[in-house]
Design a protein around this nucleic acid. Sequence first.
DNA 1: TTGCCATATACTCGCCGTGAGCAAAAGGCG
DNA 2: CGCCTTTTGCTCACGGCGAGTATATGGCAA
Lengths: 308, 308
Amino acid sequence: MERRLVIGLNIALTALVGDEPHVLCVKRPGGWGLPFGRFDPDEHRTFEVALRDFVERQTAVPLGYVEQLYTFGDKGREAPRASLVSGDESDRIVSVGYLALASEATATSLESAQWRPWYTFFPWEDRRTKGGPLPLIEDRLTAWAGDDEARQARFAFTFGSDDSPWAEERAIDRYELMYEAHAVAEAHRDRDGVDGPELFGEAMISDHRRILATAIGRLRGKMRYRPVVFQVIPDEFTLSDLQGGVEAILGFSIHKQNFRRGVESAHLVTKTEKTTQRTGGRPAAVYQVGPNAELKTAIGLPLPRLKP
Amino acid sequence: MERRLVIGLNIALTALVGDEPHVLCVKRPGGWGLPFGRFDPDEHRTFEVALRDFVERQTAVPLGYVEQLYTFGDKGREAPRASLVSGDESDRIVSVGYLALASEATATSLESAQWRPWYTFFPWEDRRTKGGPLPLIEDRLTAWAGDDEARQARFAFTFGSDDSPWAEERAIDRYELMYEAHAVAEAHRDRDGVDGPELFGEAMISDHRRILATAIGRLRGKMRYRPVVFQVIPDEFTLSDLQGGVEAILGFSIHKQNFRRGVESAHLVTKTEKTTQRTGGRPAAVYQVGPNAELKTAIGLPLPRLKP
DNA sequence: TTGCCATATACTCGCCGTGAGCAAAAGGCG
DNA sequence: CGCCTTTTGCTCACGGCGAGTATATGGCAA
């Protein structure tokens, strides 16, 4: 018999809550997943229309910036959730992943929908503070590599080492390495039977965690050459707010003075008359987006890494 | 009645022929198009398998580097070629575009397949030499903009001006602007009735020229942070060969000495004992790819633009 | 009231990447 | 032998950027 093709749309919608990036998740039988919907060729003229339609209907959260990530067509990936979407096990599901940004984590109308922090799914991606589970993970991966030089090189390259620095946008490579090392729950779920000692980060259904990793990497990469931060912060902000947002997404801390100099000299922000003392010490000037902060502008934020 | 979903795979396979980038085209009733095939969920495990399968079968050209570009799902775009793929007008076609690179423009087994130069489709993208159709095009677009300030700004930004430089990777934006200005044949074909004075570049069937523009832009952008050139040049080359390849893809000329300094200091190439006097003047050293030329390396080529 | 703390803001210094130009070397060819 | 072509080597200066130091301005507690 002929298998029908079904196109599913997955979306990684992220917003900032304080200094933590969050992603909109939906509770499913089997765990948390990204919001997704089936693309209906009769009803929807384009993917984006369908996407906005079902996200806003399901969760009542309006979508701002939207970008297509990747189309996943691998056989096998759909098995665990075929029944969730179509109810027909014989359908072949192809899914299109999207990244979307919201300037505010709006309350969802659906109780099964919830904003959850990025780094509960990817604890190793947050390097703003030392400590945390990172040493544990590195031990785990060192053990996985063992004497295999290819594995060692890949580990060093993907997670950073002396001669190859940590590349924040390589989130998907790190997740895939974790997967191959059986250090994430999905690896066990997909290839049944095998079991592993320690698992890191919270799992998601199907390959949604992979899609989220792709979204994180894409967003981080984009920050280098497009002023995307302004899509996830309010219209009025202090430079500390801005820097906090950047650091939250990138997952590492940056040098304050040079960051300030960079955004101001690039006319990415404009100072207003107002000040706020919400931040604690000396009152901070309130800024707005500047003339060069349009999305199409091919200007990146200055990202002076802090070394410690 | 229910419309069925069909997934088509389109590929922009490019290779260098001398100092001109070429793309593999297939002759169809209605004009030239990119090689494409229908994805069969029963037969193919992944998109890439399907892609390699049908390209190598149709044209006998082996695929090297492959990268997914974008998935196009707009209604209407498939109309002109629905009959070519499925024969059933009521199907809804979604197509996944791919970029692929070959190190050599291998002869095709199919007589309807042929390598054709990029810039016959996009004459305005080649700025290596002055002159050409560029002034004509600029006149055309200036006329299109007229007094509309938004159009003027968009034209200046997309095609470059005094304060916003020519951004080579913005090929798709330029094509879309040409489309809206009715300066390409596809605009007339899609919205029938309208006719325009002058048309630029050769047309392709369906939206294949849009896909090719996306591929060109993606490839050009990738050159800034990945050593992709080495996928389209032979194993042994002179630095002039390398520079010629870079310039061919980017569409502008670069500064020779600084380019050389860049690739050598970044260990992207290694010098061999051999020399060649194929180039004319003083014999040139023959180089091979260096240790940092792997695709995963996050190192870009130095691209010192030449100003004249 | 005074001293301390926290944050914001201002200014300086030096390295080095990169754009740009000059000059010499090593072939072919009339 | 002199001229042309292309390759190759070297220098110089500007500006971006990493890094450090110093000052301003609020809250708060002793």
